[in-house]
């Protein structure tokens, strides 16, 4: 019996259990401080749907041994280009959203390809480099947002300046097109379920899961598990890594589009800078390691992480009359990443 418990703790890891219990206690405490559990749950679910695909974007690179994708901003940029282009062309509704995807995916694939060429030359040091490649690309895009020839009046600065605004509303274009699709509410609107967004999220989960069930997906997993073994089996290791990086980048682009349609705003400039960190923290929280991740890790991790993000402001604030959510977010997410990085893994390099 004690052995079982110990084994469970070993498998899950202390930080994960502590955070899980913390979230549980937040839900338990909610009714006592006049926070409606149903509303909180609804908020959590909306945020899970919003962030799910971004977290999913970690999986391919983790599986191929490229480590945690701190370069997520690269995919996000491609998504943002798709989003702004569709607004520029006044594409509305589901079609507009589809148009944004059509623009974003090839850009993401191209960026991902270039990004993979860098990562293939710096094996073993991918994570730090990915972080700064992500950061630099955000900075480059800051300049590009100023210079690109967008002229839709809803997007550019009002007072005669050139360049795009820092936040652009998707109201009237494709705000909530996924979220509201077959959405339903309960209890007079206290509970809202964004059915369409979840359908999209689960479709993506299914596609990625299916991809890793194919011959190529199997090869990518083997490359991540032991690149020397894969090479001895005739696999082109760099090619597999390239595919995984491109896939991650494309998922990043799709992820930000889902996020933006639910959020209602496109955030440009420095907005994407730190977006990789919550996604990284979420997948680690879900039980992934630096080189193994599953769909379950994605779903569980996103739920736990977003759960804490939604519950801490409401519950902790009511308890302590002070907004500690930001500090808790920083400590939880970075603590989780730190834990994963310092854990002794059996992985051979």
């Amino acid at each position: 019996m004690g052995g079982h418990v110990r084994k469970f703790i070993e498998n899950a890891g202390w930080p994960r259990i502590i955070i899980g219990l913390f979230l549980l206690s937040l839900y338990a405490a909610a009714p006592f401080v006049n926070v409606r559990v149903l509303t909180s749950l609804s908020d959590t679910l909306v945020r899970v749907g919003m962030n799910g695909v971004l977290v999913l974007a970690m999986v391919p690179m983790v599986q191929s041994g490229c480590g945690l994708n701190f370069g997520l901003p690269l995919g996000i940029i491609a998504g943002l280009l798709g989003a702004t282009t569709s607004v520029q062309f006044e594409a509305r509704g589901l079609a507009g959203f589809g148009f944004a995807i059509l623009v974003a995916v090839p850009i993401a694939a191209a960026l991902g390809f270039a990004y993979a060429q860098i990562l293939n030359r710096v094996k073993g040091e991918e994570m730090m480099i990915a972080t700064y490649v992500g950061f630099s690309s955000v900075a480059v895009m800051c300049m590009a947002w100023l210079l690109l020839p967008f002229d839709s009046p809803v997007m550019i600065w009002g007072y005669g300046g050139t360049g795009l605004r820092t936040t652009i509303s998707t109201e009237g274009f494709w705000r909530h097109v996924l979220s509201d699709f077959a959405a339903f509410g309960l209890d007079g609107g206290a509970f809202y379920f964004p059915t369409g967004m979840f359908l999209f999220f689960f479709m993506m989960l299914f596609l990625v899961w299916a991809f890793f069930r194919t011959k190529t997906g199997t090869a990518i997993t083997a490359v991540g598990s032991n690149p020397e073994f894969a090479r001895a089996s005739g696999i082109d290791v760099n090619r597999m890594r390239t595919i995984s990086v491109m896939l991650s980048t494309v998922l990043g682009a799709l992820g930000i589009l889902v996020y933006d349609q639910s959020f209602g705003f496109i955030q440009l400039y420095m907005g994407p800078l730190y977006m990789a960190f919550p996604a990284v923290a979420a997948i680690l929280l879900g039980g992934a390691s630096v080189n193994k991740a599953t769909m379950v890790n994605v779903v569980v991790g996103t739920f736990l992480f977003q759960g804490i993000l939604t519950m801490t402001p409401s519950v902790i604030n009511s308890l302590l009359q002070s907004d500690m959510s930001e500090v808790i977010r920083i400590i939880v997410s970075n603590g989780m990443i730190l834990y994963a990085l310092t854990r002794k893994t059996q992985v051979k390099r």
């Binding site: 073993g124 955000v138 480059v140």
Partner: peptide
């Protein structure tokens, strides 16, 4: 300026690894 700060670190890290 921001780009240079980030970019230089990225380039230095890549060059080192390479």
């Amino acid at each position: 300026r921001v780009f240079v700060s980030y970019g230089i670190i990225a380039v230095a890290l890549v060059l080192h690894a390479w």
